[in-house]
Protein backbone atom coordinates (compact mmCIF):
# COMPACT_ATOMS: atom_id res chain seq x y z
CA UNK A 1 0.00 0.00 0.00
CA UNK A 2 1.39 3.35 -1.07
CA UNK A 3 2.31 5.57 1.86
CA UNK A 4 0.67 8.98 1.93
CA UNK A 5 2.18 11.62 4.10
CA UNK A 6 0.55 14.51 5.94
CA UNK A 7 -2.30 14.82 8.40
CA UNK A 8 -5.67 13.71 7.01
CA UNK A 9 -8.01 16.44 5.72
CA UNK A 10 -10.99 14.22 6.46
CA UNK A 11 -11.21 12.05 9.54
CA UNK A 12 -14.32 9.94 9.93
CA UNK A 13 -14.76 7.97 13.14
CA UNK A 14 -17.49 5.43 13.90
CA UNK A 15 -20.04 6.84 11.52
CA UNK A 16 -23.45 5.24 11.79
CA UNK A 17 -26.40 6.15 9.61
CA UNK A 18 -30.02 5.06 9.49
CA UNK A 19 -32.68 5.56 6.87
CA UNK A 20 -36.25 5.35 8.15
CA UNK A 21 -35.11 3.51 11.24
CA UNK A 22 -33.00 0.98 9.36
CA UNK A 23 -29.31 1.10 10.14
CA UNK A 24 -27.31 1.20 6.89
CA UNK A 25 -23.86 2.32 8.02
CA UNK A 26 -22.48 0.43 10.97
CA UNK A 27 -19.42 2.29 12.16
CA UNK A 28 -17.31 3.69 9.33
CA UNK A 29 -13.86 5.09 10.00
CA UNK A 30 -11.86 6.65 7.21
CA UNK A 31 -8.92 9.06 6.78
CA UNK A 32 -8.38 10.96 3.54
CA UNK A 33 -5.23 13.01 3.05
CA UNK A 34 -4.62 16.04 0.84
CA UNK A 35 -4.17 15.02 -2.78
CA UNK A 36 -5.06 11.37 -2.11
CA UNK A 37 -7.58 9.44 -4.17
CA UNK A 38 -9.63 6.91 -2.25
CA UNK A 39 -12.02 4.51 -3.92
CA UNK A 40 -14.92 2.96 -2.10
CA UNK A 41 -16.24 -0.15 -3.80
CA UNK A 42 -19.02 -2.43 -2.82
CA UNK A 43 -22.00 -4.43 -4.04
CA UNK A 44 -25.47 -2.93 -4.39
CA UNK A 45 -27.07 -1.99 -1.09
CA UNK A 46 -23.83 -2.02 0.82
CA UNK A 47 -24.30 1.60 1.92
CA UNK A 48 -22.01 3.39 -0.56
CA UNK A 49 -24.39 6.20 -1.46
CA UNK A 50 -25.58 6.42 2.14
CA UNK A 51 -21.99 7.13 3.14
CA UNK A 52 -21.78 9.98 0.62
CA UNK A 53 -25.06 11.54 1.74
CA UNK A 54 -24.43 11.03 5.45
CA UNK A 55 -21.07 12.78 5.12
CA UNK A 56 -22.80 15.71 3.38
CA UNK A 57 -25.54 15.84 6.02
CA UNK A 58 -28.63 14.95 3.99
CA UNK A 59 -31.66 15.26 6.29
CA UNK A 60 -33.03 11.82 5.34
CA UNK A 61 -30.10 10.11 7.06
CA UNK A 62 -29.96 9.92 10.80
CA UNK A 63 -26.38 9.68 11.97
CA UNK A 64 -26.97 8.40 15.47
CA UNK A 65 -25.43 5.20 16.63
CA UNK A 66 -27.70 2.59 18.11
CA UNK A 67 -24.83 1.83 20.45
CA UNK A 68 -24.90 4.93 22.60
CA UNK A 69 -21.40 4.53 24.01
CA UNK A 70 -19.69 5.01 20.64
CA UNK A 71 -18.65 8.55 19.82
CA UNK A 72 -18.94 9.45 16.15
CA UNK A 73 -17.22 12.31 14.39
CA UNK A 74 -16.60 13.75 10.93
CA UNK A 75 -13.64 16.07 11.05
CA UNK A 76 -12.72 18.30 8.14
CA UNK A 77 -9.50 20.10 8.94
CA UNK A 78 -10.02 20.61 12.64
CA UNK A 79 -13.78 21.11 12.57
CA UNK A 80 -16.16 18.36 13.63
CA UNK A 81 -19.06 18.81 11.21
CA UNK A 82 -21.15 15.87 12.43
CA UNK A 83 -23.79 18.15 13.95
CA UNK A 84 -23.52 20.93 11.40
CA UNK A 85 -26.06 21.54 8.63
CA UNK A 86 -25.18 20.72 5.03
CA UNK A 87 -24.19 24.25 4.02
CA UNK A 88 -21.76 24.50 6.96
CA UNK A 89 -20.16 21.23 5.92
CA UNK A 90 -19.71 22.62 2.42
CA UNK A 91 -18.17 25.76 3.86
CA UNK A 92 -15.81 23.60 5.91
CA UNK A 93 -14.53 22.21 2.60
CA UNK A 94 -16.68 19.21 1.69
CA UNK A 95 -18.06 18.72 -1.83
CA UNK A 96 -20.41 16.04 -3.11
CA UNK A 97 -20.88 15.29 -6.81
CA UNK A 98 -24.37 13.90 -6.92
CA UNK A 99 -25.12 10.74 -8.90
CA UNK A 100 -28.34 11.89 -10.56
CA UNK A 101 -28.55 15.60 -9.90
CA UNK A 102 -31.92 17.30 -10.23
CA UNK A 103 -32.53 20.30 -12.51
CA UNK A 104 -32.87 23.79 -11.10
CA UNK A 105 -34.70 25.76 -13.80
CA UNK A 106 -33.79 29.41 -14.14
CA UNK A 107 -30.54 29.14 -12.16
CA UNK A 108 -27.60 29.11 -14.54
CA UNK A 109 -24.47 27.04 -14.02
CA UNK A 110 -22.44 30.24 -13.88
CA UNK A 111 -24.77 31.80 -11.32
CA UNK A 112 -24.47 28.71 -9.14
CA UNK A 113 -20.68 28.69 -9.41
CA UNK A 114 -20.43 32.41 -8.72
CA UNK A 115 -22.71 32.29 -5.69
CA UNK A 116 -21.18 29.13 -4.22
CA UNK A 117 -17.58 30.19 -4.80
CA UNK A 118 -18.07 33.44 -2.95
CA UNK A 119 -19.75 31.71 0.00
CA UNK A 120 -17.13 28.97 0.17
CA UNK A 121 -14.26 31.40 0.10
CA UNK A 122 -15.87 33.89 2.40
CA UNK A 123 -12.86 34.89 4.50
CA UNK A 124 -11.05 36.09 1.46
CA UNK A 125 -14.21 37.73 0.14
CA UNK A 126 -15.03 39.70 3.24
CA UNK A 127 -12.77 42.61 2.56
CA UNK A 128 -15.26 44.05 0.12
CA UNK A 129 -17.76 44.41 2.97
CA UNK A 130 -20.67 43.45 0.78
CA UNK A 131 -23.28 40.79 1.37
CA UNK A 132 -22.12 37.71 -0.47
CA UNK A 133 -25.57 36.71 -1.68
CA UNK A 134 -25.70 38.97 -4.68
CA UNK A 135 -28.25 38.00 -7.28
CA UNK A 136 -28.72 41.49 -8.50
CA UNK A 137 -27.48 41.70 -12.08
CA UNK A 138 -26.27 45.26 -11.56
CA UNK A 139 -24.42 44.55 -8.34
CA UNK A 140 -22.90 41.42 -9.76
CA UNK A 141 -20.37 43.64 -11.46
CA UNK A 142 -18.94 44.27 -8.01
CA UNK A 143 -18.57 40.54 -7.40
CA UNK A 144 -15.27 39.68 -5.84
CA UNK A 145 -13.94 36.68 -4.01
CA UNK A 146 -10.57 35.38 -3.00
CA UNK A 147 -8.93 38.47 -4.47
CA UNK A 148 -10.53 37.78 -7.84
CA UNK A 149 -12.93 39.93 -9.82
CA UNK A 150 -15.73 38.46 -11.85
CA UNK A 151 -13.85 38.66 -15.15
CA UNK A 152 -10.95 36.63 -13.78
CA UNK A 153 -13.37 34.16 -12.20
CA UNK A 154 -15.26 33.67 -15.46
CA UNK A 155 -11.99 33.16 -17.30
CA UNK A 156 -11.02 30.41 -14.84
CA UNK A 157 -14.41 28.73 -15.12
CA UNK A 158 -14.13 28.71 -18.91
CA UNK A 159 -10.65 27.27 -18.71
CA UNK A 160 -11.87 24.36 -16.58
CA UNK A 161 -14.87 23.87 -18.86
CA UNK A 162 -12.46 23.62 -21.78
CA UNK A 163 -10.42 20.97 -20.01
CA UNK A 164 -13.60 18.96 -19.47
CA UNK A 165 -14.63 19.49 -23.11
CA UNK A 166 -17.79 21.12 -21.90
CA UNK A 167 -19.12 23.72 -24.32
CA UNK A 168 -19.21 27.23 -22.84
CA UNK A 169 -22.89 27.51 -23.71
CA UNK A 170 -23.61 25.19 -20.77
CA UNK A 171 -22.46 27.91 -18.39
CA UNK A 172 -25.44 30.08 -19.19
CA UNK A 173 -27.94 27.23 -19.20
CA UNK A 174 -30.05 26.26 -16.21
CA UNK A 175 -28.31 23.80 -13.89
CA UNK A 176 -28.86 20.24 -15.20
CA UNK A 177 -32.02 21.30 -17.04
CA UNK A 178 -32.25 18.98 -20.03
CA UNK A 179 -28.62 17.84 -19.69
CA UNK A 180 -27.63 14.34 -20.77
CA UNK A 181 -26.11 11.92 -18.27
CA UNK A 182 -22.60 12.72 -19.45
CA UNK A 183 -23.19 16.46 -19.38
CA UNK A 184 -24.46 16.24 -15.82
CA UNK A 185 -21.33 14.40 -14.69
CA UNK A 186 -19.13 16.97 -16.39
CA UNK A 187 -20.99 19.83 -14.75
CA UNK A 188 -20.59 18.13 -11.36
CA UNK A 189 -16.88 17.76 -12.07
CA UNK A 190 -16.64 21.37 -13.24
CA UNK A 191 -18.05 22.53 -9.91
CA UNK A 192 -15.50 20.46 -8.00
CA UNK A 193 -12.67 22.00 -10.02
CA UNK A 194 -13.91 25.57 -9.68
CA UNK A 195 -14.99 25.43 -6.04
CA UNK A 196 -11.69 23.79 -4.98
CA UNK A 197 -12.93 21.93 -1.90
CA UNK A 198 -10.70 20.22 0.67
CA UNK A 199 -12.53 16.92 0.09
CA UNK A 200 -14.54 15.97 -3.01
CA UNK A 201 -16.82 12.93 -3.02
CA UNK A 202 -17.95 11.49 -6.36
CA UNK A 203 -20.98 9.27 -6.09
CA UNK A 204 -21.05 6.84 -9.03
CA UNK A 205 -19.33 9.33 -11.31
CA UNK A 206 -18.70 6.58 -13.88
CA UNK A 207 -22.22 5.27 -14.46
CA UNK A 208 -23.69 6.00 -17.85
CA UNK A 209 -20.53 7.50 -19.31
CA UNK A 210 -18.91 6.63 -22.61
CA UNK A 211 -15.18 6.10 -22.87
CA UNK A 212 -14.45 9.69 -23.91
CA UNK A 213 -16.39 11.08 -20.99
CA UNK A 214 -14.69 8.67 -18.59
CA UNK A 215 -11.32 9.87 -19.79
CA UNK A 216 -12.37 13.49 -19.27
CA UNK A 217 -13.62 12.77 -15.76
CA UNK A 218 -10.38 10.90 -15.00
CA UNK A 219 -8.43 13.98 -16.09
CA UNK A 220 -10.58 16.09 -13.77
CA UNK A 221 -9.67 13.87 -10.85
CA UNK A 222 -5.99 14.26 -11.70
CA UNK A 223 -6.40 18.04 -11.62
CA UNK A 224 -8.07 17.84 -8.21
CA UNK A 225 -5.25 15.66 -6.96
CA UNK A 226 -2.73 18.27 -8.09
CA UNK A 227 -4.83 20.96 -6.37
CA UNK A 228 -4.37 18.93 -3.15
CA UNK A 229 -8.02 18.08 -2.87
CA UNK A 230 -8.67 14.75 -1.15
CA UNK A 231 -10.89 12.64 -3.44
CA UNK A 232 -13.35 9.88 -2.58
CA UNK A 233 -14.72 7.95 -5.56
CA UNK A 234 -17.70 5.77 -4.88
CA UNK A 235 -18.19 3.20 -7.58
CA UNK A 236 -20.10 0.10 -8.36
CA UNK A 237 -18.59 -0.66 -11.74
CA UNK A 238 -15.03 0.61 -11.15
CA UNK A 239 -14.77 1.48 -14.88
CA UNK A 240 -13.31 4.82 -13.83
CA UNK A 241 -10.29 3.00 -12.43
CA UNK A 242 -8.96 2.49 -15.95
CA UNK A 243 -8.45 6.25 -16.06
CA UNK A 244 -7.51 7.00 -12.45
CA UNK A 245 -5.05 5.14 -10.28
CA UNK A 246 -6.27 5.32 -6.71
CA UNK A 247 -4.00 5.55 -3.69
CA UNK A 248 -6.32 3.56 -1.47
CA UNK A 249 -9.19 1.16 -2.17
CA UNK A 250 -11.82 0.35 0.45
CA UNK A 251 -14.36 -2.43 0.21
CA UNK A 252 -17.71 -1.58 1.77
CA UNK A 253 -20.01 -4.49 2.52
CA UNK A 254 -23.03 -4.50 4.82
CA UNK A 255 -22.38 -0.97 6.06
CA UNK A 256 -18.80 -1.70 7.16
CA UNK A 257 -15.40 -1.29 5.55
CA UNK A 258 -14.27 -4.88 5.35
CA UNK A 259 -11.02 -4.48 3.45
CA UNK A 260 -8.58 -1.72 2.59
CA UNK A 261 -5.65 -1.95 0.24
CA UNK A 262 -3.67 -0.40 -2.60
CA UNK A 263 -4.83 0.02 -6.21
CA UNK A 264 -4.31 -3.68 -6.88
CA UNK A 265 -7.24 -4.51 -4.60
CA UNK A 266 -9.63 -3.06 -7.16
CA UNK A 267 -8.30 -5.39 -9.85
CA UNK A 268 -8.64 -8.34 -7.57
CA UNK A 269 -12.27 -7.52 -6.83
CA UNK A 270 -13.00 -7.05 -10.49
CA UNK A 271 -11.87 -10.60 -11.08
CA UNK A 272 -13.18 -12.31 -7.97
CA UNK A 273 -16.21 -10.22 -6.98
CA UNK A 274 -17.36 -9.65 -3.44
CA UNK A 275 -18.13 -13.30 -2.63
CA UNK A 276 -15.37 -13.71 -0.10
CA UNK A 277 -16.69 -10.75 1.94
CA UNK A 278 -20.28 -11.87 2.10
Amino acid sequence: MKKISGTPLLKVRNLFASVEGKEVLKGISLDVEAGAVHVIMGPNGSGKSTLAYALMGHPHYEVKSHLSKVKSSIEIGNTDVLNLPTEERARAGLYLAIQSPIAIPGVSVMQLLRTAYQLLHIEQSQKINETPNIQNPVLVRRWQANGMGLTEFVRRVKQFAGQLRLDESFLSRSVHDGFSGGEKKKVEMLQALVLAPKIAIFDEIDTGLDVDALRVVGKGIDVLRRQKTGVIIITHYNRILRYVTPDVVHVLVGGKIVDTGAAALAGKIEKEGYAKYL
Binding site: E87, A90, L96, A116, L119
Partner: peptide, 17 residues
Protein backbone atom coordinates in the same frame (compact mmCIF):
# COMPACT_ATOMS: atom_id res chain seq x y z
CA UNK B 1 -30.16 19.87 -0.66
CA UNK B 2 -28.25 20.36 -3.87
CA UNK B 3 -27.82 24.09 -3.29
CA UNK B 4 -27.10 23.61 0.44
CA UNK B 5 -24.37 21.15 -0.49
CA UNK B 6 -22.76 23.98 -2.44
CA UNK B 7 -22.52 26.09 0.70
CA UNK B 8 -25.60 28.20 -0.01
CA UNK B 9 -27.80 28.89 3.03
CA UNK B 10 -31.44 27.82 3.14
CA UNK B 11 -33.02 31.25 2.66
CA UNK B 12 -30.76 32.12 -0.23
CA UNK B 13 -31.22 28.69 -1.78
CA UNK B 14 -35.00 29.10 -1.65
CA UNK B 15 -34.83 32.53 -3.19
CA UNK B 16 -32.58 31.21 -5.97
CA UNK B 17 -35.10 28.45 -6.71
Amino acid sequence: FYLLSRGIGKAQAESMI
